[in-house]
Design a protein around this nucleic acid. Structure first.
Lengths: 225, 225
DNA sequence: CCCTGTGAAATAATTCACAGCA
DNA sequence: TGCTGTGAATTATTTCACAGGG
């Protein structure tokens, strides 16, 4: 009666990383009133090969109809289920400088069951301020809030110097998933899943490719006309 | 006389993605006064296997000393060179809402040769405002600025609805590398390299793993003491 | 037919294990 | 001896190509 149609165990990381993109594209199609897509159509909208799309989807189960395609609505629900988006994910943001403010009011956060329910900062000039209907609290209140609001995901938006301490505090408070925006890596117990999102890293990868491209085809002044 | 010690052609994407992390760790070691590391030490500081580190570094050339290790300074310079960080990368940010403001003043941007030299937004309430010493300009001035400032990297921080148009304008203006923070994918000519950084995507991947972990080891109330 | 789902083949990335040099 | 650099083995991922159901 545990009613779990597929064990999530055999969905590879590479596949999981593509699921949010599939889901976003399906939502766009649904908005346009499209109710059915073939793997070729969906794949080209996403920018992957149709064989890869089918292989990915086959990991979730058989939700397509041979000779026809996939029902947009059904598939979206199924991907949401596998990603864990059918439940609620209370999120805490630590560090309410520019970046923290932007994150706390970013629309991408509000979607798909993620709710920013707690904001923390130790700057007395920030404590008490409301951002998106949530009041900024002193960092010391973190453990109590994690328990009372069942916070499962913590976001670190502090300067680099504070990141390690915040990560440890989040882990100690019971948070098992951390999104780290601080320009520093953090070391946490293996039970905690950390994903780092870093501007600087992305820019450096971009610079590498930009440089490669320059070698391949030196950009001349041929702008527009 | 082109003096290129290795062709960057055979450095795989997987390796390139790890180089910024190696570089950051090397910088930290240098600050601490460490002048030499073995692959085992560096690998454990970064969180990869030593064999992978050596394989990655071997792609850049032979900069280690057998029986000893790698000279921190030399290796950092070499990775910087390969990533293209020894030159200057003028950056334009388009969309100066909360996120754009945060990006324009984010310290991670200022490092490693990336300079935010132009900010664009069409909101009359924002045009003219200074952020980090740079004045926000109307979007129509983009092509002229790209040329005059040799802007090679564009950052999209607009709402989803504007992203596609901004991407096309950047591409048309001659920008060949785009970092897209808008909650929407954009379609651009193949000559343009786009990297998308998306909160929502990261959160969804995090949710998947958080859910998996919950199944594996249900979190009990064992908090601190 | 057409398009899904999937074994089999090809390719890519990681890890092992050790030769070879300081 | 100790640690790098690298072929060889292993594992992961992608792509091919087609059997099979609607």
């Amino acid at each position: 009666m545990s009613a779990d149609p597929i064990s999530r165990r055999d969905v590879s990381d590479a596949t999981v990383a593509r699921l949010p993109e599939y889901l976003r594209t399906l939502s766009r199609l649904a908005e346009r009133g499209v109710s059915c897509v073939s793997s070729a159509e969906l794949a080209s909208a996403v920018g992957v090969r149709s064989a890869q799309l089918r292989k990915d989807l086959s990991r979730l189960g058989s939700y397509g109809v041979r000779g026809v395609g996939y029902e947009v609505e059904t598939l979206a629900v199924e991907i949401s289920r596998v990603l864990g988006l059918t439940r609620d994910w209370p999120v805490a943001v630590v560090g309410m400088g520019n970046l923290g403010h932007a994150l706390a009011s970013y629309p991408g956060f509000a979607t798909k069951g993620f709710r920013v329910v707690a904001l923390f900062d130790d700057d007395p000039g920030l404590v008490g301020e409301q951002v998106g209907g949530v009041v900024i609290r002193p960092f010391a209140e973190l453990p109590a809030r994690v328990r009372s609001d069942r916070i499962a995901i913590g976001v670190i938006a502090t300067p680099a110097a504070a990141a390690q301490a915040v990560g440890e505090a989040l882990a100690a408070a019971g948070v098992r998933s951390i999104l780290n925006f601080a320009p520093a890596s953090i070391a946490v117990p293996a039970a905690v899943d950390v994903r780092r999102v870093d501007l600087s890293t992305e820019l450096q990868i971009l610079a590498f490719h930009a440089q490669r491209r320059t070698y391949a085809a030196p950009l001349s002044g041929a702008v527009a006309r």
